[in-house]
Simulated assay, not measured.
Amino acid sequence: MSGATHPIVKGWCPGAHRPMMSGDGLVVRVRPFRAELTSAQTLALCDLSQRYGNGVIDLTSRANLQLRGVAEADHPALLTALDALGLIDADPAIEGHRNILVPARRDAGGLTGRLYDQVLAALPRLPDLPEKMGFAIDTGPDACLGYGSADFRFELDTTGALLLRADGAQTARPVTEATAKAALLDLARWFAETGGGPAGRMARHLTTTSLPQAWTQTEPRTQSAPCVPGSVPEGSILGAPFGKLAADDLQTLLEKSGASHMRLMLNRLFLLVDGTPGDTPFVTEPGNPLMSAHACPGAPFCPQATVPTMDIARDLASRVSGTLHVSGCAKGCALPRAADTTLTGRDGRFDLVRNGAPWDTPCARGLSPKDLNETL
């Protein structure tokens, strides 16, 4: 569904060095290197969440972590602690651009890790890019990062050869591991030199600007079915409904599971490397309707939201078919794309969008929570 204008959103995301003020305090985003934390780092982060935040860690749509409810006076101490844990960059500018998706299922020391190192090395040499732009290294055993937000995508073709694809393009440029960094810099410079900055993202830029032929040579392999909770050779995949990781629950899980590491995944999933979850409040089996429901913090935790979201999404999750998105406002932070059923907060009530995003034209407006129970 279309017809409405996409809302104006901030051109940057909260980071560790540059947190964002929300209704419950500062939001401090932590981008773990390689989307991985040791068990010791995870336990320490849980402690920091309880000491400086509200005791709940957010697992974001880009597979990062957020501490919420941090007082401004506590931010310097929290930053020092995160640095001591090796979870942040010393340079705030690099920190702001280190938006790198990697598959949780990967070989230690394999191609994915080597490409990650190349992307890290390229960050200081990139032209001035919009801060929301990011990278995906979709070179694991299955192609699994296609739905993740990224602008520069390292992928494989059907023969296993390496490609670099501009997000929004169907085809890509063949590269090798030896030429990968140079190719990434070339594509970033092309984006900047052709005026991509105002568009903000690669896919939007490509709606008005054509790529050079060299970047449209080869198709990537087909994306696999999305990962779901359950056992995998590397350990156990678990789900966090609405991306909420209660620090005390996560501490208990890490202490009892025997996991060596925690790897962050898209779709509010995480992998316990070499871990067995046992009894836990996190989702351990596929098919749980809460994993198809999306909701931002909502009011009163976000100043732009005019409605509460979490309880309504939890109540409706098992009653609607397909994906459900309850958004506190038209930005759609929890799911910035279409869902089967989208509820958008506006002036204390909800607009209903079928098969669309929060900024699309609704089919019903001004619904109360009681109206939702009768309509859905």
Rank of each mutant, 00 (worst) to 15 (best):
S292T: 03
A247L: 12
T194V: 09
P229L: 08
K256S: 04
I312K: 07
M291P: 00
T309F: 00
G196P: 02
V283N: 03
P286G: 05
A247Y: 09
P297I: 10
H261A: 03
V307S: 05
L238C: 12
T252V: 06
T276E: 06
D311R: 12
S292V: 03
C296H: 04
L290G: 01
F270L: 05
L185Y: 11
G196N: 15
P198I: 07
A214L: 13
S210V: 08
M262T: 01
G287I: 11
Q251V: 02
G278V: 02
A203N: 13
R201Q: 12
L187F: 13
T208M: 12
R201F: 15
A203H: 13
T306G: 13
Q251S: 11
I237N: 06
C227P: 04
A214D: 08
T306A: 12
Q213L: 13
L254T: 09
L290Y: 01
D186T: 09
P303E: 15
T194E: 07
G239K: 07
R263Q: 04
Q223C: 11
K256V: 00
T216M: 05
G235P: 11
G258I: 07
T306R: 05
A305Q: 02
G197F: 14
C296R: 10
G195S: 15
H261Q: 01
P198K: 14
M291S: 01
P226G: 14
L269Y: 00
A203S: 14
A259D: 07
M265C: 02
E193M: 15
L264H: 05
A188R: 03
M262H: 00
P277E: 02
M202N: 05
L185A: 08
L266Y: 01
A299Y: 08
T280W: 05
S210M: 09
G196K: 14
P241V: 15
S292F: 04
L272R: 01
A299W: 08
P289N: 06
T208K: 11
L271F: 00
V283I: 04
G235A: 14
